[in-house]
Amino acid sequence: MHLFSILISQIINGLQSGAIYALVALGYSMVYGIILLLNFAHGDIIMVGAYAVWFSMAHLGLHPIPSMLLAVAASTLLGVLIEKLAYTPLRSAPRLSLLITAIGVSFLLENSFQLIFGAGAQTVPNLISGPSLQVGSVTVSFSAMLTILVSVICMAGLTFLVQKTKLGKAMRAVSENMSAAQLMGISLNRTISFTFAMGSALAGVGSVLYLCTYGQASPTMGSMLGLKAFVAAVLGGIGSLPGAMIGGFAIGLTEALVSAAGLSVWKDGAVFAILIVVLLVKPTGLLGKPMVEKV
């Protein structure tokens, strides 16, 4: 029974971190789906979001709720800004140039935050507290419930947006055939910016949820989180939104179960082992479609 309750708690931990990975993986997949870019600066948007929470609370003296909203707004704006300044000028450049630029943007963000705020971690006071849930011998923390609930709501919202709204359909049209989409009267610039805005807003929500649990922001926090979310996106099939959600939860659960087995030192290794296996066995991921070269 004791072992069983440890397992259940670890699964809940896994779902909690998995929910954050899933939110971040969605941003990776959306951007890849539309401009075929692995946006390696995506993880750093989370970092900037976390610093926005910390800065508004510690320096502006704001209440947690407006601080969190501000963080989501800042992440969204940053995502669109990066796209406009760094990626739009390279739209007809080779894809490798775009990828290298994304890595450059990532370094720029990490290093400029180290320069401005120092390399150490900033502690964010408890953002939201509430009662935890006791089920038998298993305790579910408030932050775990909140993280899972908020993520699921965000994912449902995104799914609705992409499947049912005009803008969402335009996103799908652009991701499938850019020139045909333009011939329909769809503006590429607007649709691509909107995609970055949505992906970055989800990263902003991810940063807030991350802080609710871990309470710390550091300039390099986004790189490992971003890489694992990238693995999640690849596992699910990059470009597929349901895939990114499944991949995120799968990565979170893997980490938690590896830790539960007493191998917590190996949990990062396990995640990257998944990447290698996926790339060797099924490079298109669980739900990905094989890429057909457009002529």
């Binding site: 055939n177 011939l183 009267g185």
Partner: peptide, 30 residues
Amino acid sequence: PHKLVGKGLAQVPEGRAVFLRMTVEENLEM
């Protein structure tokens, strides 16, 4: 190109270029 549709110019592209992963109705909506 996206500004020309509103002016009354439409094109049926080479090789049809329908959105293969979208439904017939969604294609028409686009």
